[in-house]
Simulated assay, not measured.
Amino acid sequence: MDKEDIRRSKVRLGDLLIDAGLLNDIQLQRALQEQKRTGFKLGRTVVDLGFVDEVRLLTALSEQLNISFIELKHFKFDKALVQTLPEAVARRFRVIVLSRLGEGLVVGMSDPLDLFALDEMDRLLKTSVQPAVVREAELLTALDMLYRRTSEMDLIAGELEGELKDNDFDLSALGADSNSEAPVVRLLKTLFEDAVQMRASDIHIEPGEGILRIRQRIDGVLSEHIMKEARVASALVMRLKIMSGLDISEKRLPQDGRFNIRVKNHTIDVRMSTMPVQFGESVVMRLLDQTHGITSLDAGGMPAPMLARFRQLLQRPFGLVLVTGP
């Protein structure tokens, strides 16, 4: 079913869920009242209220509209194709470009009944759009992964490298420059914004022979980005040392420090360590997001039987809990 078919069918999600036996009239009225209060879409509202499981809702929607229900967790994305749609639009309408289909495109949507979003896709992509239904949480995770700031970091690093090629350039002045438009400041800002977007727990800055490695630990796995502008490493390290209150003249001994920054409405406590290495100084930063506080046990993702057993263990007066990998 394409956009015009959806428009002609005039399907309403509430009626669809009642016809599928997933909601009753009382639950629908309750959901509509809650939707009016929160401003959220009806689909998210019925899921948040616990009336319908998200997978069952999306399956019913895909069957009624005769469109695909795609699990994004293991989907192989074409990054260049995804980025044909601006990030702001993708996040606003909760959509992602998935693949080509003939002369058109398949677009994953958390709400394929959003005709305004479909019209915008047609206008911006300048081709016909075939909607597919996807889980909203998986879609948002995919957007975070695919719309990263690495290309912007490369551009700023190239600009900074150009400034550093002048032999008379005062590197100390660059590190201490408080101008928010200075390349080193913009590069660090972009680096931290990318780390927060990816929910990284650590950032590693490692100078090598002719290259600079920037690694982020995301869900326990190091993700590496390599820059050819190796000379920017010293400027980054110097700026970070100033922010942490460390001795910028000491490059032969390890140092530890900390500082706080605010990125995208997140308050981040940064614990920083420097270490002299063969090609300069490496930096490791641990990012502690103070905005979200401590995650509750219920939000930890444990299966219900395991969570119940874990709570029982916590009531014991002594013992040891080991958290290990596979």
Rank of each mutant, 00 (worst) to 15 (best):
L61R: 03
T324A: 12
R94M: 09
P303K: 10
V11T: 15
I205S: 03
P207Q: 07
L81A: 06
S62K: 11
E250F: 11
D53K: 13
M227A: 06
S223R: 12
L58V: 09
D19R: 15
Q290K: 15
M275I: 07
H225K: 14
L81K: 06
V283Q: 01
M275T: 07
L313W: 09
V237W: 04
L124Y: 14
D168N: 14
N24C: 09
D78V: 09
L118R: 01
M272T: 09
V221L: 12
K73D: 09
L49Q: 10
F279P: 00
M285E: 00
R286W: 09
K126S: 11
G293F: 07
A308N: 13
R217K: 15
L124E: 12
V11H: 08
R316N: 13
N66L: 02
D202F: 15
D194Y: 04
L307F: 01
R94L: 13
L253S: 08
L140E: 14
F279Y: 14
Y147C: 08
S223F: 11
R56F: 11
P317E: 07
M121P: 02
V184K: 06
V55S: 14
P326N: 05
Q33T: 11
F51T: 05
M145Q: 12
M302G: 00
R215M: 04
G208E: 02
L61S: 01
G210Y: 07
V232K: 08
V284W: 05
R94E: 15
I268R: 12
V129W: 04
S244T: 10
D168R: 15
Q130A: 09
A60T: 04
P254D: 12
E63W: 07
P326R: 08
K3I: 15
I211Y: 12
V52Q: 04
L124W: 10
S273G: 08
M285P: 03
L65T: 01
L253E: 05
R316S: 15
A88Y: 01
F93G: 10
I96G: 02
L146I: 08
L42N: 00
A299T: 10
A195S: 13
T295H: 02
L191S: 01
G280I: 02
I6K: 09
